[in-house]
């Protein structure tokens, strides 16, 4: 009987490890923002553009990983593609603040060393994700903001551009609409959430576009990395900082567990310390990456927030949960298989 039990237990172990290995094929996952992304608001042409940019970003990161470079290299390269593309609310194509400026935030974290870097409120750095990396690798600090961050980026040799570089007509029109609609309350760029407290949110957002970009990657050495980059909220005021540049809230990576990048209504992600929470649920409670991802998004929803996230664990399992109508997202496996999704 004892021997039978032992045999049974052994085969369970073998079976479950096989199963985990089959699932663990992912090496890079991206998002291009979550929000009210519905088929009704999309044309086939527009959808094709979004898909092609997501594909290009995935392929770029994949090539970096396949060449044997680190997950940090892959995350930076992938996010640069999304920052340079005007369709996403990060880098070029970022939304405008109340004052008509593009203020950009970004963060990156190395899961092996727990080193991290982030910048907030920068207006002249072409690729904020590269500035975040420079903060991580070339400064004694983790988080730099505003003019000081720009000065650091310049000294670190990053490409500085005229703020006009970030200007796009679509985003500018978005600001004008927002200003007309409500000059007092800022709106979440991508959300059209009628269930949320109108008084707190302001008027429903008529701007159906979406934002924040992020990437998580697992390299040949088994090192995880996460990065996030955003232009924040349309019509934001008072130097508002969202979750994207906050380590633990919008961005987190730890080789013991998982790499996470979030997108959505940043205030709720800060209050829930979402990215670190996902990691803690795995490490301390033994949840799988998908169970933990589902749990943290439910917690955001419970507080009245919405959005999504991408998470890739140390074994190559991934999850891309969200509680909005859609989230631009995609993943690539070790063998190069690509998956891209937009809607729910």
């Amino acid at each position: 009987m004892k021997r039978l039990l032992l045999f049974f237990m052994c085969s369970m172990v073998i079976l479950s490890s096989l199963f985990a290995q089959q699932k663990g094929d992912y090496i890079l996952v991206i998002h291009g923002g979550a929000g009210t992304i519905t088929r009704q608001n999309m044309t086939p042409e527009k959808e094709a553009v979004y898909r092609s940019v997501l594909q290009k970003a995935l392929e770029t990161g994949y090539a970096v990983l396949k060449s044997g470079k680190s997950s940090i290299d892959a995350v930076e390269a992938t996010i640069r593609v999304l920052e340079d593309d005007p369709h996403f609310n990060a880098g070029k194509g970022a939304v405008f603040t109340h004052d008509g400026r593009n203020e950009l935030d970004a963060a990156i974290m190395n899961g092996r060393t727990l080193a991290a870097g982030s910048v907030a409120g920068v207006t002249t750095i072409r690729n904020p994700i590269s500035a975040a990396r420079a903060v991580m690798e070339k400064s004694e600090h983790v988080m730099l903001i505003g003019k000081g961050a720009e000065q650091f980026a310049k000294e670190a040799g990053l490409q500085i551009v005229d703020p006009k570089y970030f200007w796009t007509k679509e985003r500018w029109d978005g600001l004008q609409k927002a200003l007309k609609e409500d000059s007092i309350k800022a709106k979440l760029d991508h959300s059209f959430n009628q269930q949320t407290d109108q008084k707190k949110l302001g008027i429903i957002n008529i701007d159906y576009k979406f934002g924040t970009v992020g990437c998580v990657a697992l390299d040949n050495n088994g090192d995880l990395a996460a990065g996030t980059s955003t232009g924040g909220m349309t019509n934001k005021k008072y130097g508002r900082v969202g979750d994207a540049p906050i380590i633990g809230a919008g961005t987190y990576a730890n080789n013991n567990t998982v790499a996470v990048s979030c997108t959505g209504w940043g205030e709720f992600y800060i209050r829930n310390v979402v990215a670190h929470d996902l990691s803690a649920l795995m490490e301390y409670k033994g949840l799988s990456v998908s169970e933990a991802g589902k749990t943290v998004i439910e917690k955001v929803g419970k507080l009245g927030g919405d959005g999504g996230l991408i998470a890739l664990d140390k074994n190559g399992n991934m999850t891309m949960p969200f509680n909005t109508a859609g989230m631009y997202r995609g993943a690539i496996k070790k063998d190069g298989t690509i998956e891209i999704y937009i809607y729910n």
Binding site: G146, G148, V273
Partner: peptide, 30 residues
């Protein structure tokens, strides 16, 4: 360079939750 430490970062230098605890930190913010 406009350095931000842990104090104003919810979850890093400051956190409170009735379910568990309230925490305030001081030290090497990074």
């Amino acid at each position: 360079y406009g350095r931000i430490g842990d104090s104003p970062i919810i979850g890093s230098g400051t956190y409170a939750n009735n379910k568990t605890c309230g925490i305030s930190c001081t030290g090497h913010g990074e």
